[in-house]
């Protein structure tokens, strides 16, 4: 490689590496702000700002969904199987909402430690399966790794 090209190559490398490290520093400084939601452990540890509008994300705890008879109010617990927080939401839930489903709720903590949500989004996971397979797996009592807790209620 002739010296002129070498010089330009070094310049290009310098540009790319320099710019990447700037972006890496900025991103690591902003790390907390880029996270879309706080998980229940973080909220329980007081890492989430109090009284501010935040998003909370986690799994809907099995057997925790309580629906109000006369309104659209739903109360359920969001958990990361480490800590869990109660969430209250009035409105229409997305189709994928069910026990064991990952969700992200937007709202704020009230004085009683209940998360008052005004928006609930379902978080889909990366697993895809035909319905016959899940039926068969359920009958056999076996679901793929890490899903057994989730799918038993969800499949029906």
């Amino acid at each position: 490689m002739n010296p002129k090209r070498k010089q330009r190559l070094i310049l290009v490398l310098f540009l790319v590496i320099g710019f990447s490290s700037v972006v890496a520093l900025v991103l690591s400084a902003l790390n907390e702000n880029i996270n879309l939601f706080y998980n229940p452990t973080q909220i329980a540890n007081g890492e989430a700002p109090e009284g501010a509008r935040i998003r909370a994300g986690g799994m809907v705890l099995e057997g925790s969904i309580k629906r109000d008879e006369s309104s659209l109010l739903v109360i359920f617990e969001v958990t990361d199987y480490n800590a869990s927080i109660p969430v209250a939401f009035t409105g229409i839930l997305p189709d994928l909402f069910r026990e064991g489903q990952g969700i992200v709720a937007m709202g704020r903590m009230d004085g009683d430690g209940i998360f008052q949500a005004d928006e609930v989004l379902a978080k889909h996971d990366e697993n895809y399966m035909p319905p016959e397979v899940t039926d068969a797996l359920e009958k056999a009592g076996k679901l793929p790794d890490g899903q057994d807790a989730i799918k038993t209620d969800a499949v029906k």
Binding site: N31, I34, N35, L36, F37, Y38, N39, G57, V104, L121, K123, H124, D125, E126, N127, Y128, M129, P130, V133
Partner: peptide, 23 residues
């Protein structure tokens, strides 16, 4: 790296896909 609403990759070069072959 961050908590996102978008799910992680179904396909990676190192692991088998989180999806059956007919899909």
């Amino acid at each position: 790296w961050w908590n996102t609403l978008h799910q992680p990759a179904t396909f990676t070069l190192t692991e088998k896909p989180a999806m059956p072959a007919e899909m």
